[in-house]
Write a protein that binds this DNA or RNA. Structure first.
Lengths: 335, 335
DNA sequence: TTGAAAGCGCTAACAC
DNA sequence: GTGTTAGCGCTTTCAA
C-alpha cells in the first residue's frame, strides 16, 4: 500500500494525501476526511525510507552505550529512550562493548543510518589520547553528538555531566570528618568520570595528609557484576596488610561487595568499616545495613540532555556543557 | 557525497560503483580498485534510506521491551543486540511501558520503520484476552515476530521460552522435601511466564495437600525495584497472621527482599525462613546468605531466538516454539 | 565487464 | 485548495 494507492482510492492526487499525512493546513475538511477514511480503511502507514530519502532525516537518534546490562547505563538508556519518544523521536541502540574499534564501527553504522544525532551514554567513550577521540569529533562533523557523563571539547559536541569530582570530594570529606583516616578508594574504571571521582577522593585525602599513594587507590579489574570476585579482592587486600577502616567505592556494586566483605570478615558496619557507594541505585537497598550512596541525579541529567538535543536540532544556541551536582544519601554504612 | 559523486570521480557509472559496494563479482579488479580508492578517499558511506527504499529492507530488527531498566530485560536486550550485530543486523529499541496502547503504537512505529522482524522481550506483551493479542498477530502478518519467554500461537510468530512451570514445580518440590510445608509464593506479575511459574508452584503444593488458596499466593503490586516496599509487604503479611517458613519468589529482587525481611525480623535463614529466587541474577550474590535461585538460561534463550530469527529471515522452516529447561542453583537460602 | 535508465515511495516547489 | 512533477540516492534489469 503506497501513497499512490491511497490517492487513487480516495480520488485525489498523491500531493493531497501527502498534505493530509503531514498535517498541512491547505486541505479542505471534506477532502481531508475522505483521505483519512481511506487511510484508516487500508491501515496504510507511510514508508519511512522514502520519507527519509526526501527529508534526509528519519527522526531517529542513535544511542551508544558500552553495555546495556550495566545497571546504571540501562537506567540511563531507559530515561533517554522514553524522553525521546515523547518528543517524536525514536532510537537505535548500539551496545558497543569497551573496544575502541567496535565503538568506531558502531558510530559509522549509526551515521550511515542517517540518525539525527548520536548520544554517547556513559564515560567509556572518551579515551586517554586525543587521537583516539577523533572519531567523536568526526561524527560531530555530521550530526550533533551528545555526551552523558563525559566531556570533550569539540564543535557540535554537547556534554551533560554530573559533578563527580565534587561529589566524591565531599563524600570523602564527610568520612574523614567522622573520624576515619584509613580510607581506601575502590574502583573499576579509569573512564572520564572514573578519573573525576578518583581525583575528588584524592584531593580530600591529600588536603588532610591522609593519602598514601598507590595503596589508597585499589583498582578492581574484572566483571562489573561479579560480586564474589570483588569481595575476594578486598579479602586479599586485607591479607596483604593494607589497613582500611573506610571504603569509598566508585559504584554501588563495588560498595555492596565491600559490605559483603565486612560481613564475611565479621567487621561491624559502620563502626569498623564504613562504606560509601555511588549511583544510589537499587543495590543501595540490597544490603544490610543499606548503603550510603551518592545520587548523581541520572534522570535529571537525561532530561537535560534531551532538552539540549532538541534545542540543537531546532537550531537554537545551546550550552556546550552543563554540570549538575550530586547528593550524598546517608544510610546505614556510614557513621 | 553520493554514489553519483563517486562514479564521476572514479570515471565509471553509478551502476559500477553500486556493484563494487555490494560485492558483485562482475567487476574487473582494476575498476574495483579504482572505485574503492575514491570511496576510501572521500570516506563515502551509502545512504541507508535510499538503499532501503529500493531493497525494502534495512537489515534492522525492532526490539520491544516493557522496561529496559529491569535487570532481567536489560540483560536480554544486551545479548540480543550483540548477537544481531554479529550477524549484520542492527536494532531499534522501544521501551513500551506496560500499557497496551503504548505497546501497539510502538509496534506500528517499528513496522513503519520497515524493520525486518520484531522481537518482543519478556512476557508482558501477551494479554489475558485473545482480542488484546491481536496486535501481535497483525504485526506478524507483516514481519516475523519473535517472542522471548512468552507464547502465542499464530502464523509467523516464533517463541523461545524457558520452562518456567517445571522449574518452579521442581523448586517447590525440593523445598517441600526439605521439610518445609508453609510455603508462600511471592510474585509481582501475572504475565505469561508469571502465570506459568505460579502454576508450577501451585501444582507442587496441591499434590502435597499444602496449598491454602489465596493465602499461599502473595501478589506484590509496586515498583519492581522498590525493595523496602517489598519487605514491608512481607512484614504486614506476617502481622496479618499468615504463617510462612518458605518463600518462593518470582524473581530475585523479591527473593532478596524476603531475605532482608528475615534479617529485620531476626529470622534465621534458611532454618526459620527458606527462600528461592528466580533468574539467578547478580542479585543472588548481593545478599547474605546468597540466594538459591533458578537459572533460566537467558543467554541460551537469546542465542536460540536469534538463530531461529535468522533462519526464518533466510526462508528456512523453523520451529514455532522452543522450550529450554531451567536449573536450580543452590546457595545459602535453602536447606 | 560496463553503462543507461527505470523504478522504490515520498516531499515540496510550482502551476493552476 | 488541489494536481503535476522533479528530485532524494540507491539497486537492478536490460543492452551494449
Amino acid at each position: 500500500m503506497t501513497i499512490y494507492d491511497i490517492s487513487e482510492k480516495a480520488g485525489v492526487s498523491i500531493a493531497t494525501v501527502s498534505r493530509v499525512l503531514n498535517g498541512s493546513s491547505n486541505v479542505s475538511e471534506k477532502t481531508k476526511k475522505k483521505v483519512l477514511d481511506v487511510i484508516d480503511k487500508y491501515e496504510y502507514t507511510p514508508n519511512a525510507f522514502a520519507r527519509g530519502l526526501g527529508l534526509n532525516t528519519m527522526k531517529t537518534i542513535g544511542i551508544m552505550c558500552a553495555d546495556s546490562s550495566d545497571l546504571y547505563l540501562a537506567k540511563a538508556i531507559y530515561y533517554i529512550e522514553q524522553k525521546l519518544r515523547t518528543n517524536g523521536y525514536d532510537s537505535i541502540l548500539c551496545c558497543t562493548g569497551y573496544n575502541l574499534k567496535n565503538k568506531i564501527s558502531s558510530m559509522n553504522l549509526l551515521i550511515s543510518k542517517k540518525v539525527d544525532s548520536i548520544i554517547l551514554v556513559g564515560s567509556h567513550f572518551i579515551c586517554e589520547s586525543e587521537a583516539d577521540n577523533k572519531y567523536i569529533a568526526d561524527a560531530a562533523a555530521q550530526v550533533p553528538v551528545m555526551l552523558l557523563n563525559a566531556a570533550l571539547e569539540a564543535p557540535n559536541v554537547y556534554c551533560v555531566v554530573s559533578d563527580d569530582y565534587t561529589s566524591m570530594y565531599e563524600a570523602t570529606l564527610q568520612m574523614i570528618q567522622s573520624g576515619i583516616t584509613d580510607i581506601v578508594y575502590f574502583y573499576n574504571s579509569a573512564s572520564y568520570s572514573g578519573k573525576k571521582k578518583l581525583a575528588g577522593y584524592r584531593a580530600a585525602m591529600e588536603e588532610h595528609g591522609l593519602f598514601k599513594g598507590e595503596e589508597s587507590m585499589q583498582f578492581y579489574q574484572g566483571s562489573h557484576e561479579d560480586i564474589p570476585a570483588m569481595t575476594n579482592y578486598l579479602r586479599q587486600l586485607c591479607q596483604k596488610g593494607v589497613v582500611f577502616r573506610g571504603i569509598i567505592a566508585a559504584d554501588d556494586t563495588l560498595a555492596l561487595a565491600a559490605v559483603k566483605y565486612a560481613r564475611e570478615s565479621r567487621l561491624q558496619i559502620p563502626k569498623e568499616l564504613a562504606v560509601i557507594g555511588y549511583n544510589n541505585s537499587m543495590l543501595a537497598h540490597c544490603c544490610d545495613p543499606e548503603l550510603t550512596s551518592i545520587d548523581n541525579k541520572l534522570e535529571t541529567l537525561c532530561q537535560h540532555l534531551i532538552s539540549t538535543l532538541l534545542g540543537v536540532l531546532g537550531g537554537s544556541e545551546m550550552p556546550k556543557k552543563t554540570v549538575f551536582s550530586g547528593e550524598l544519601i546517608k544510610r546505614g554504612t556510614t557513621l
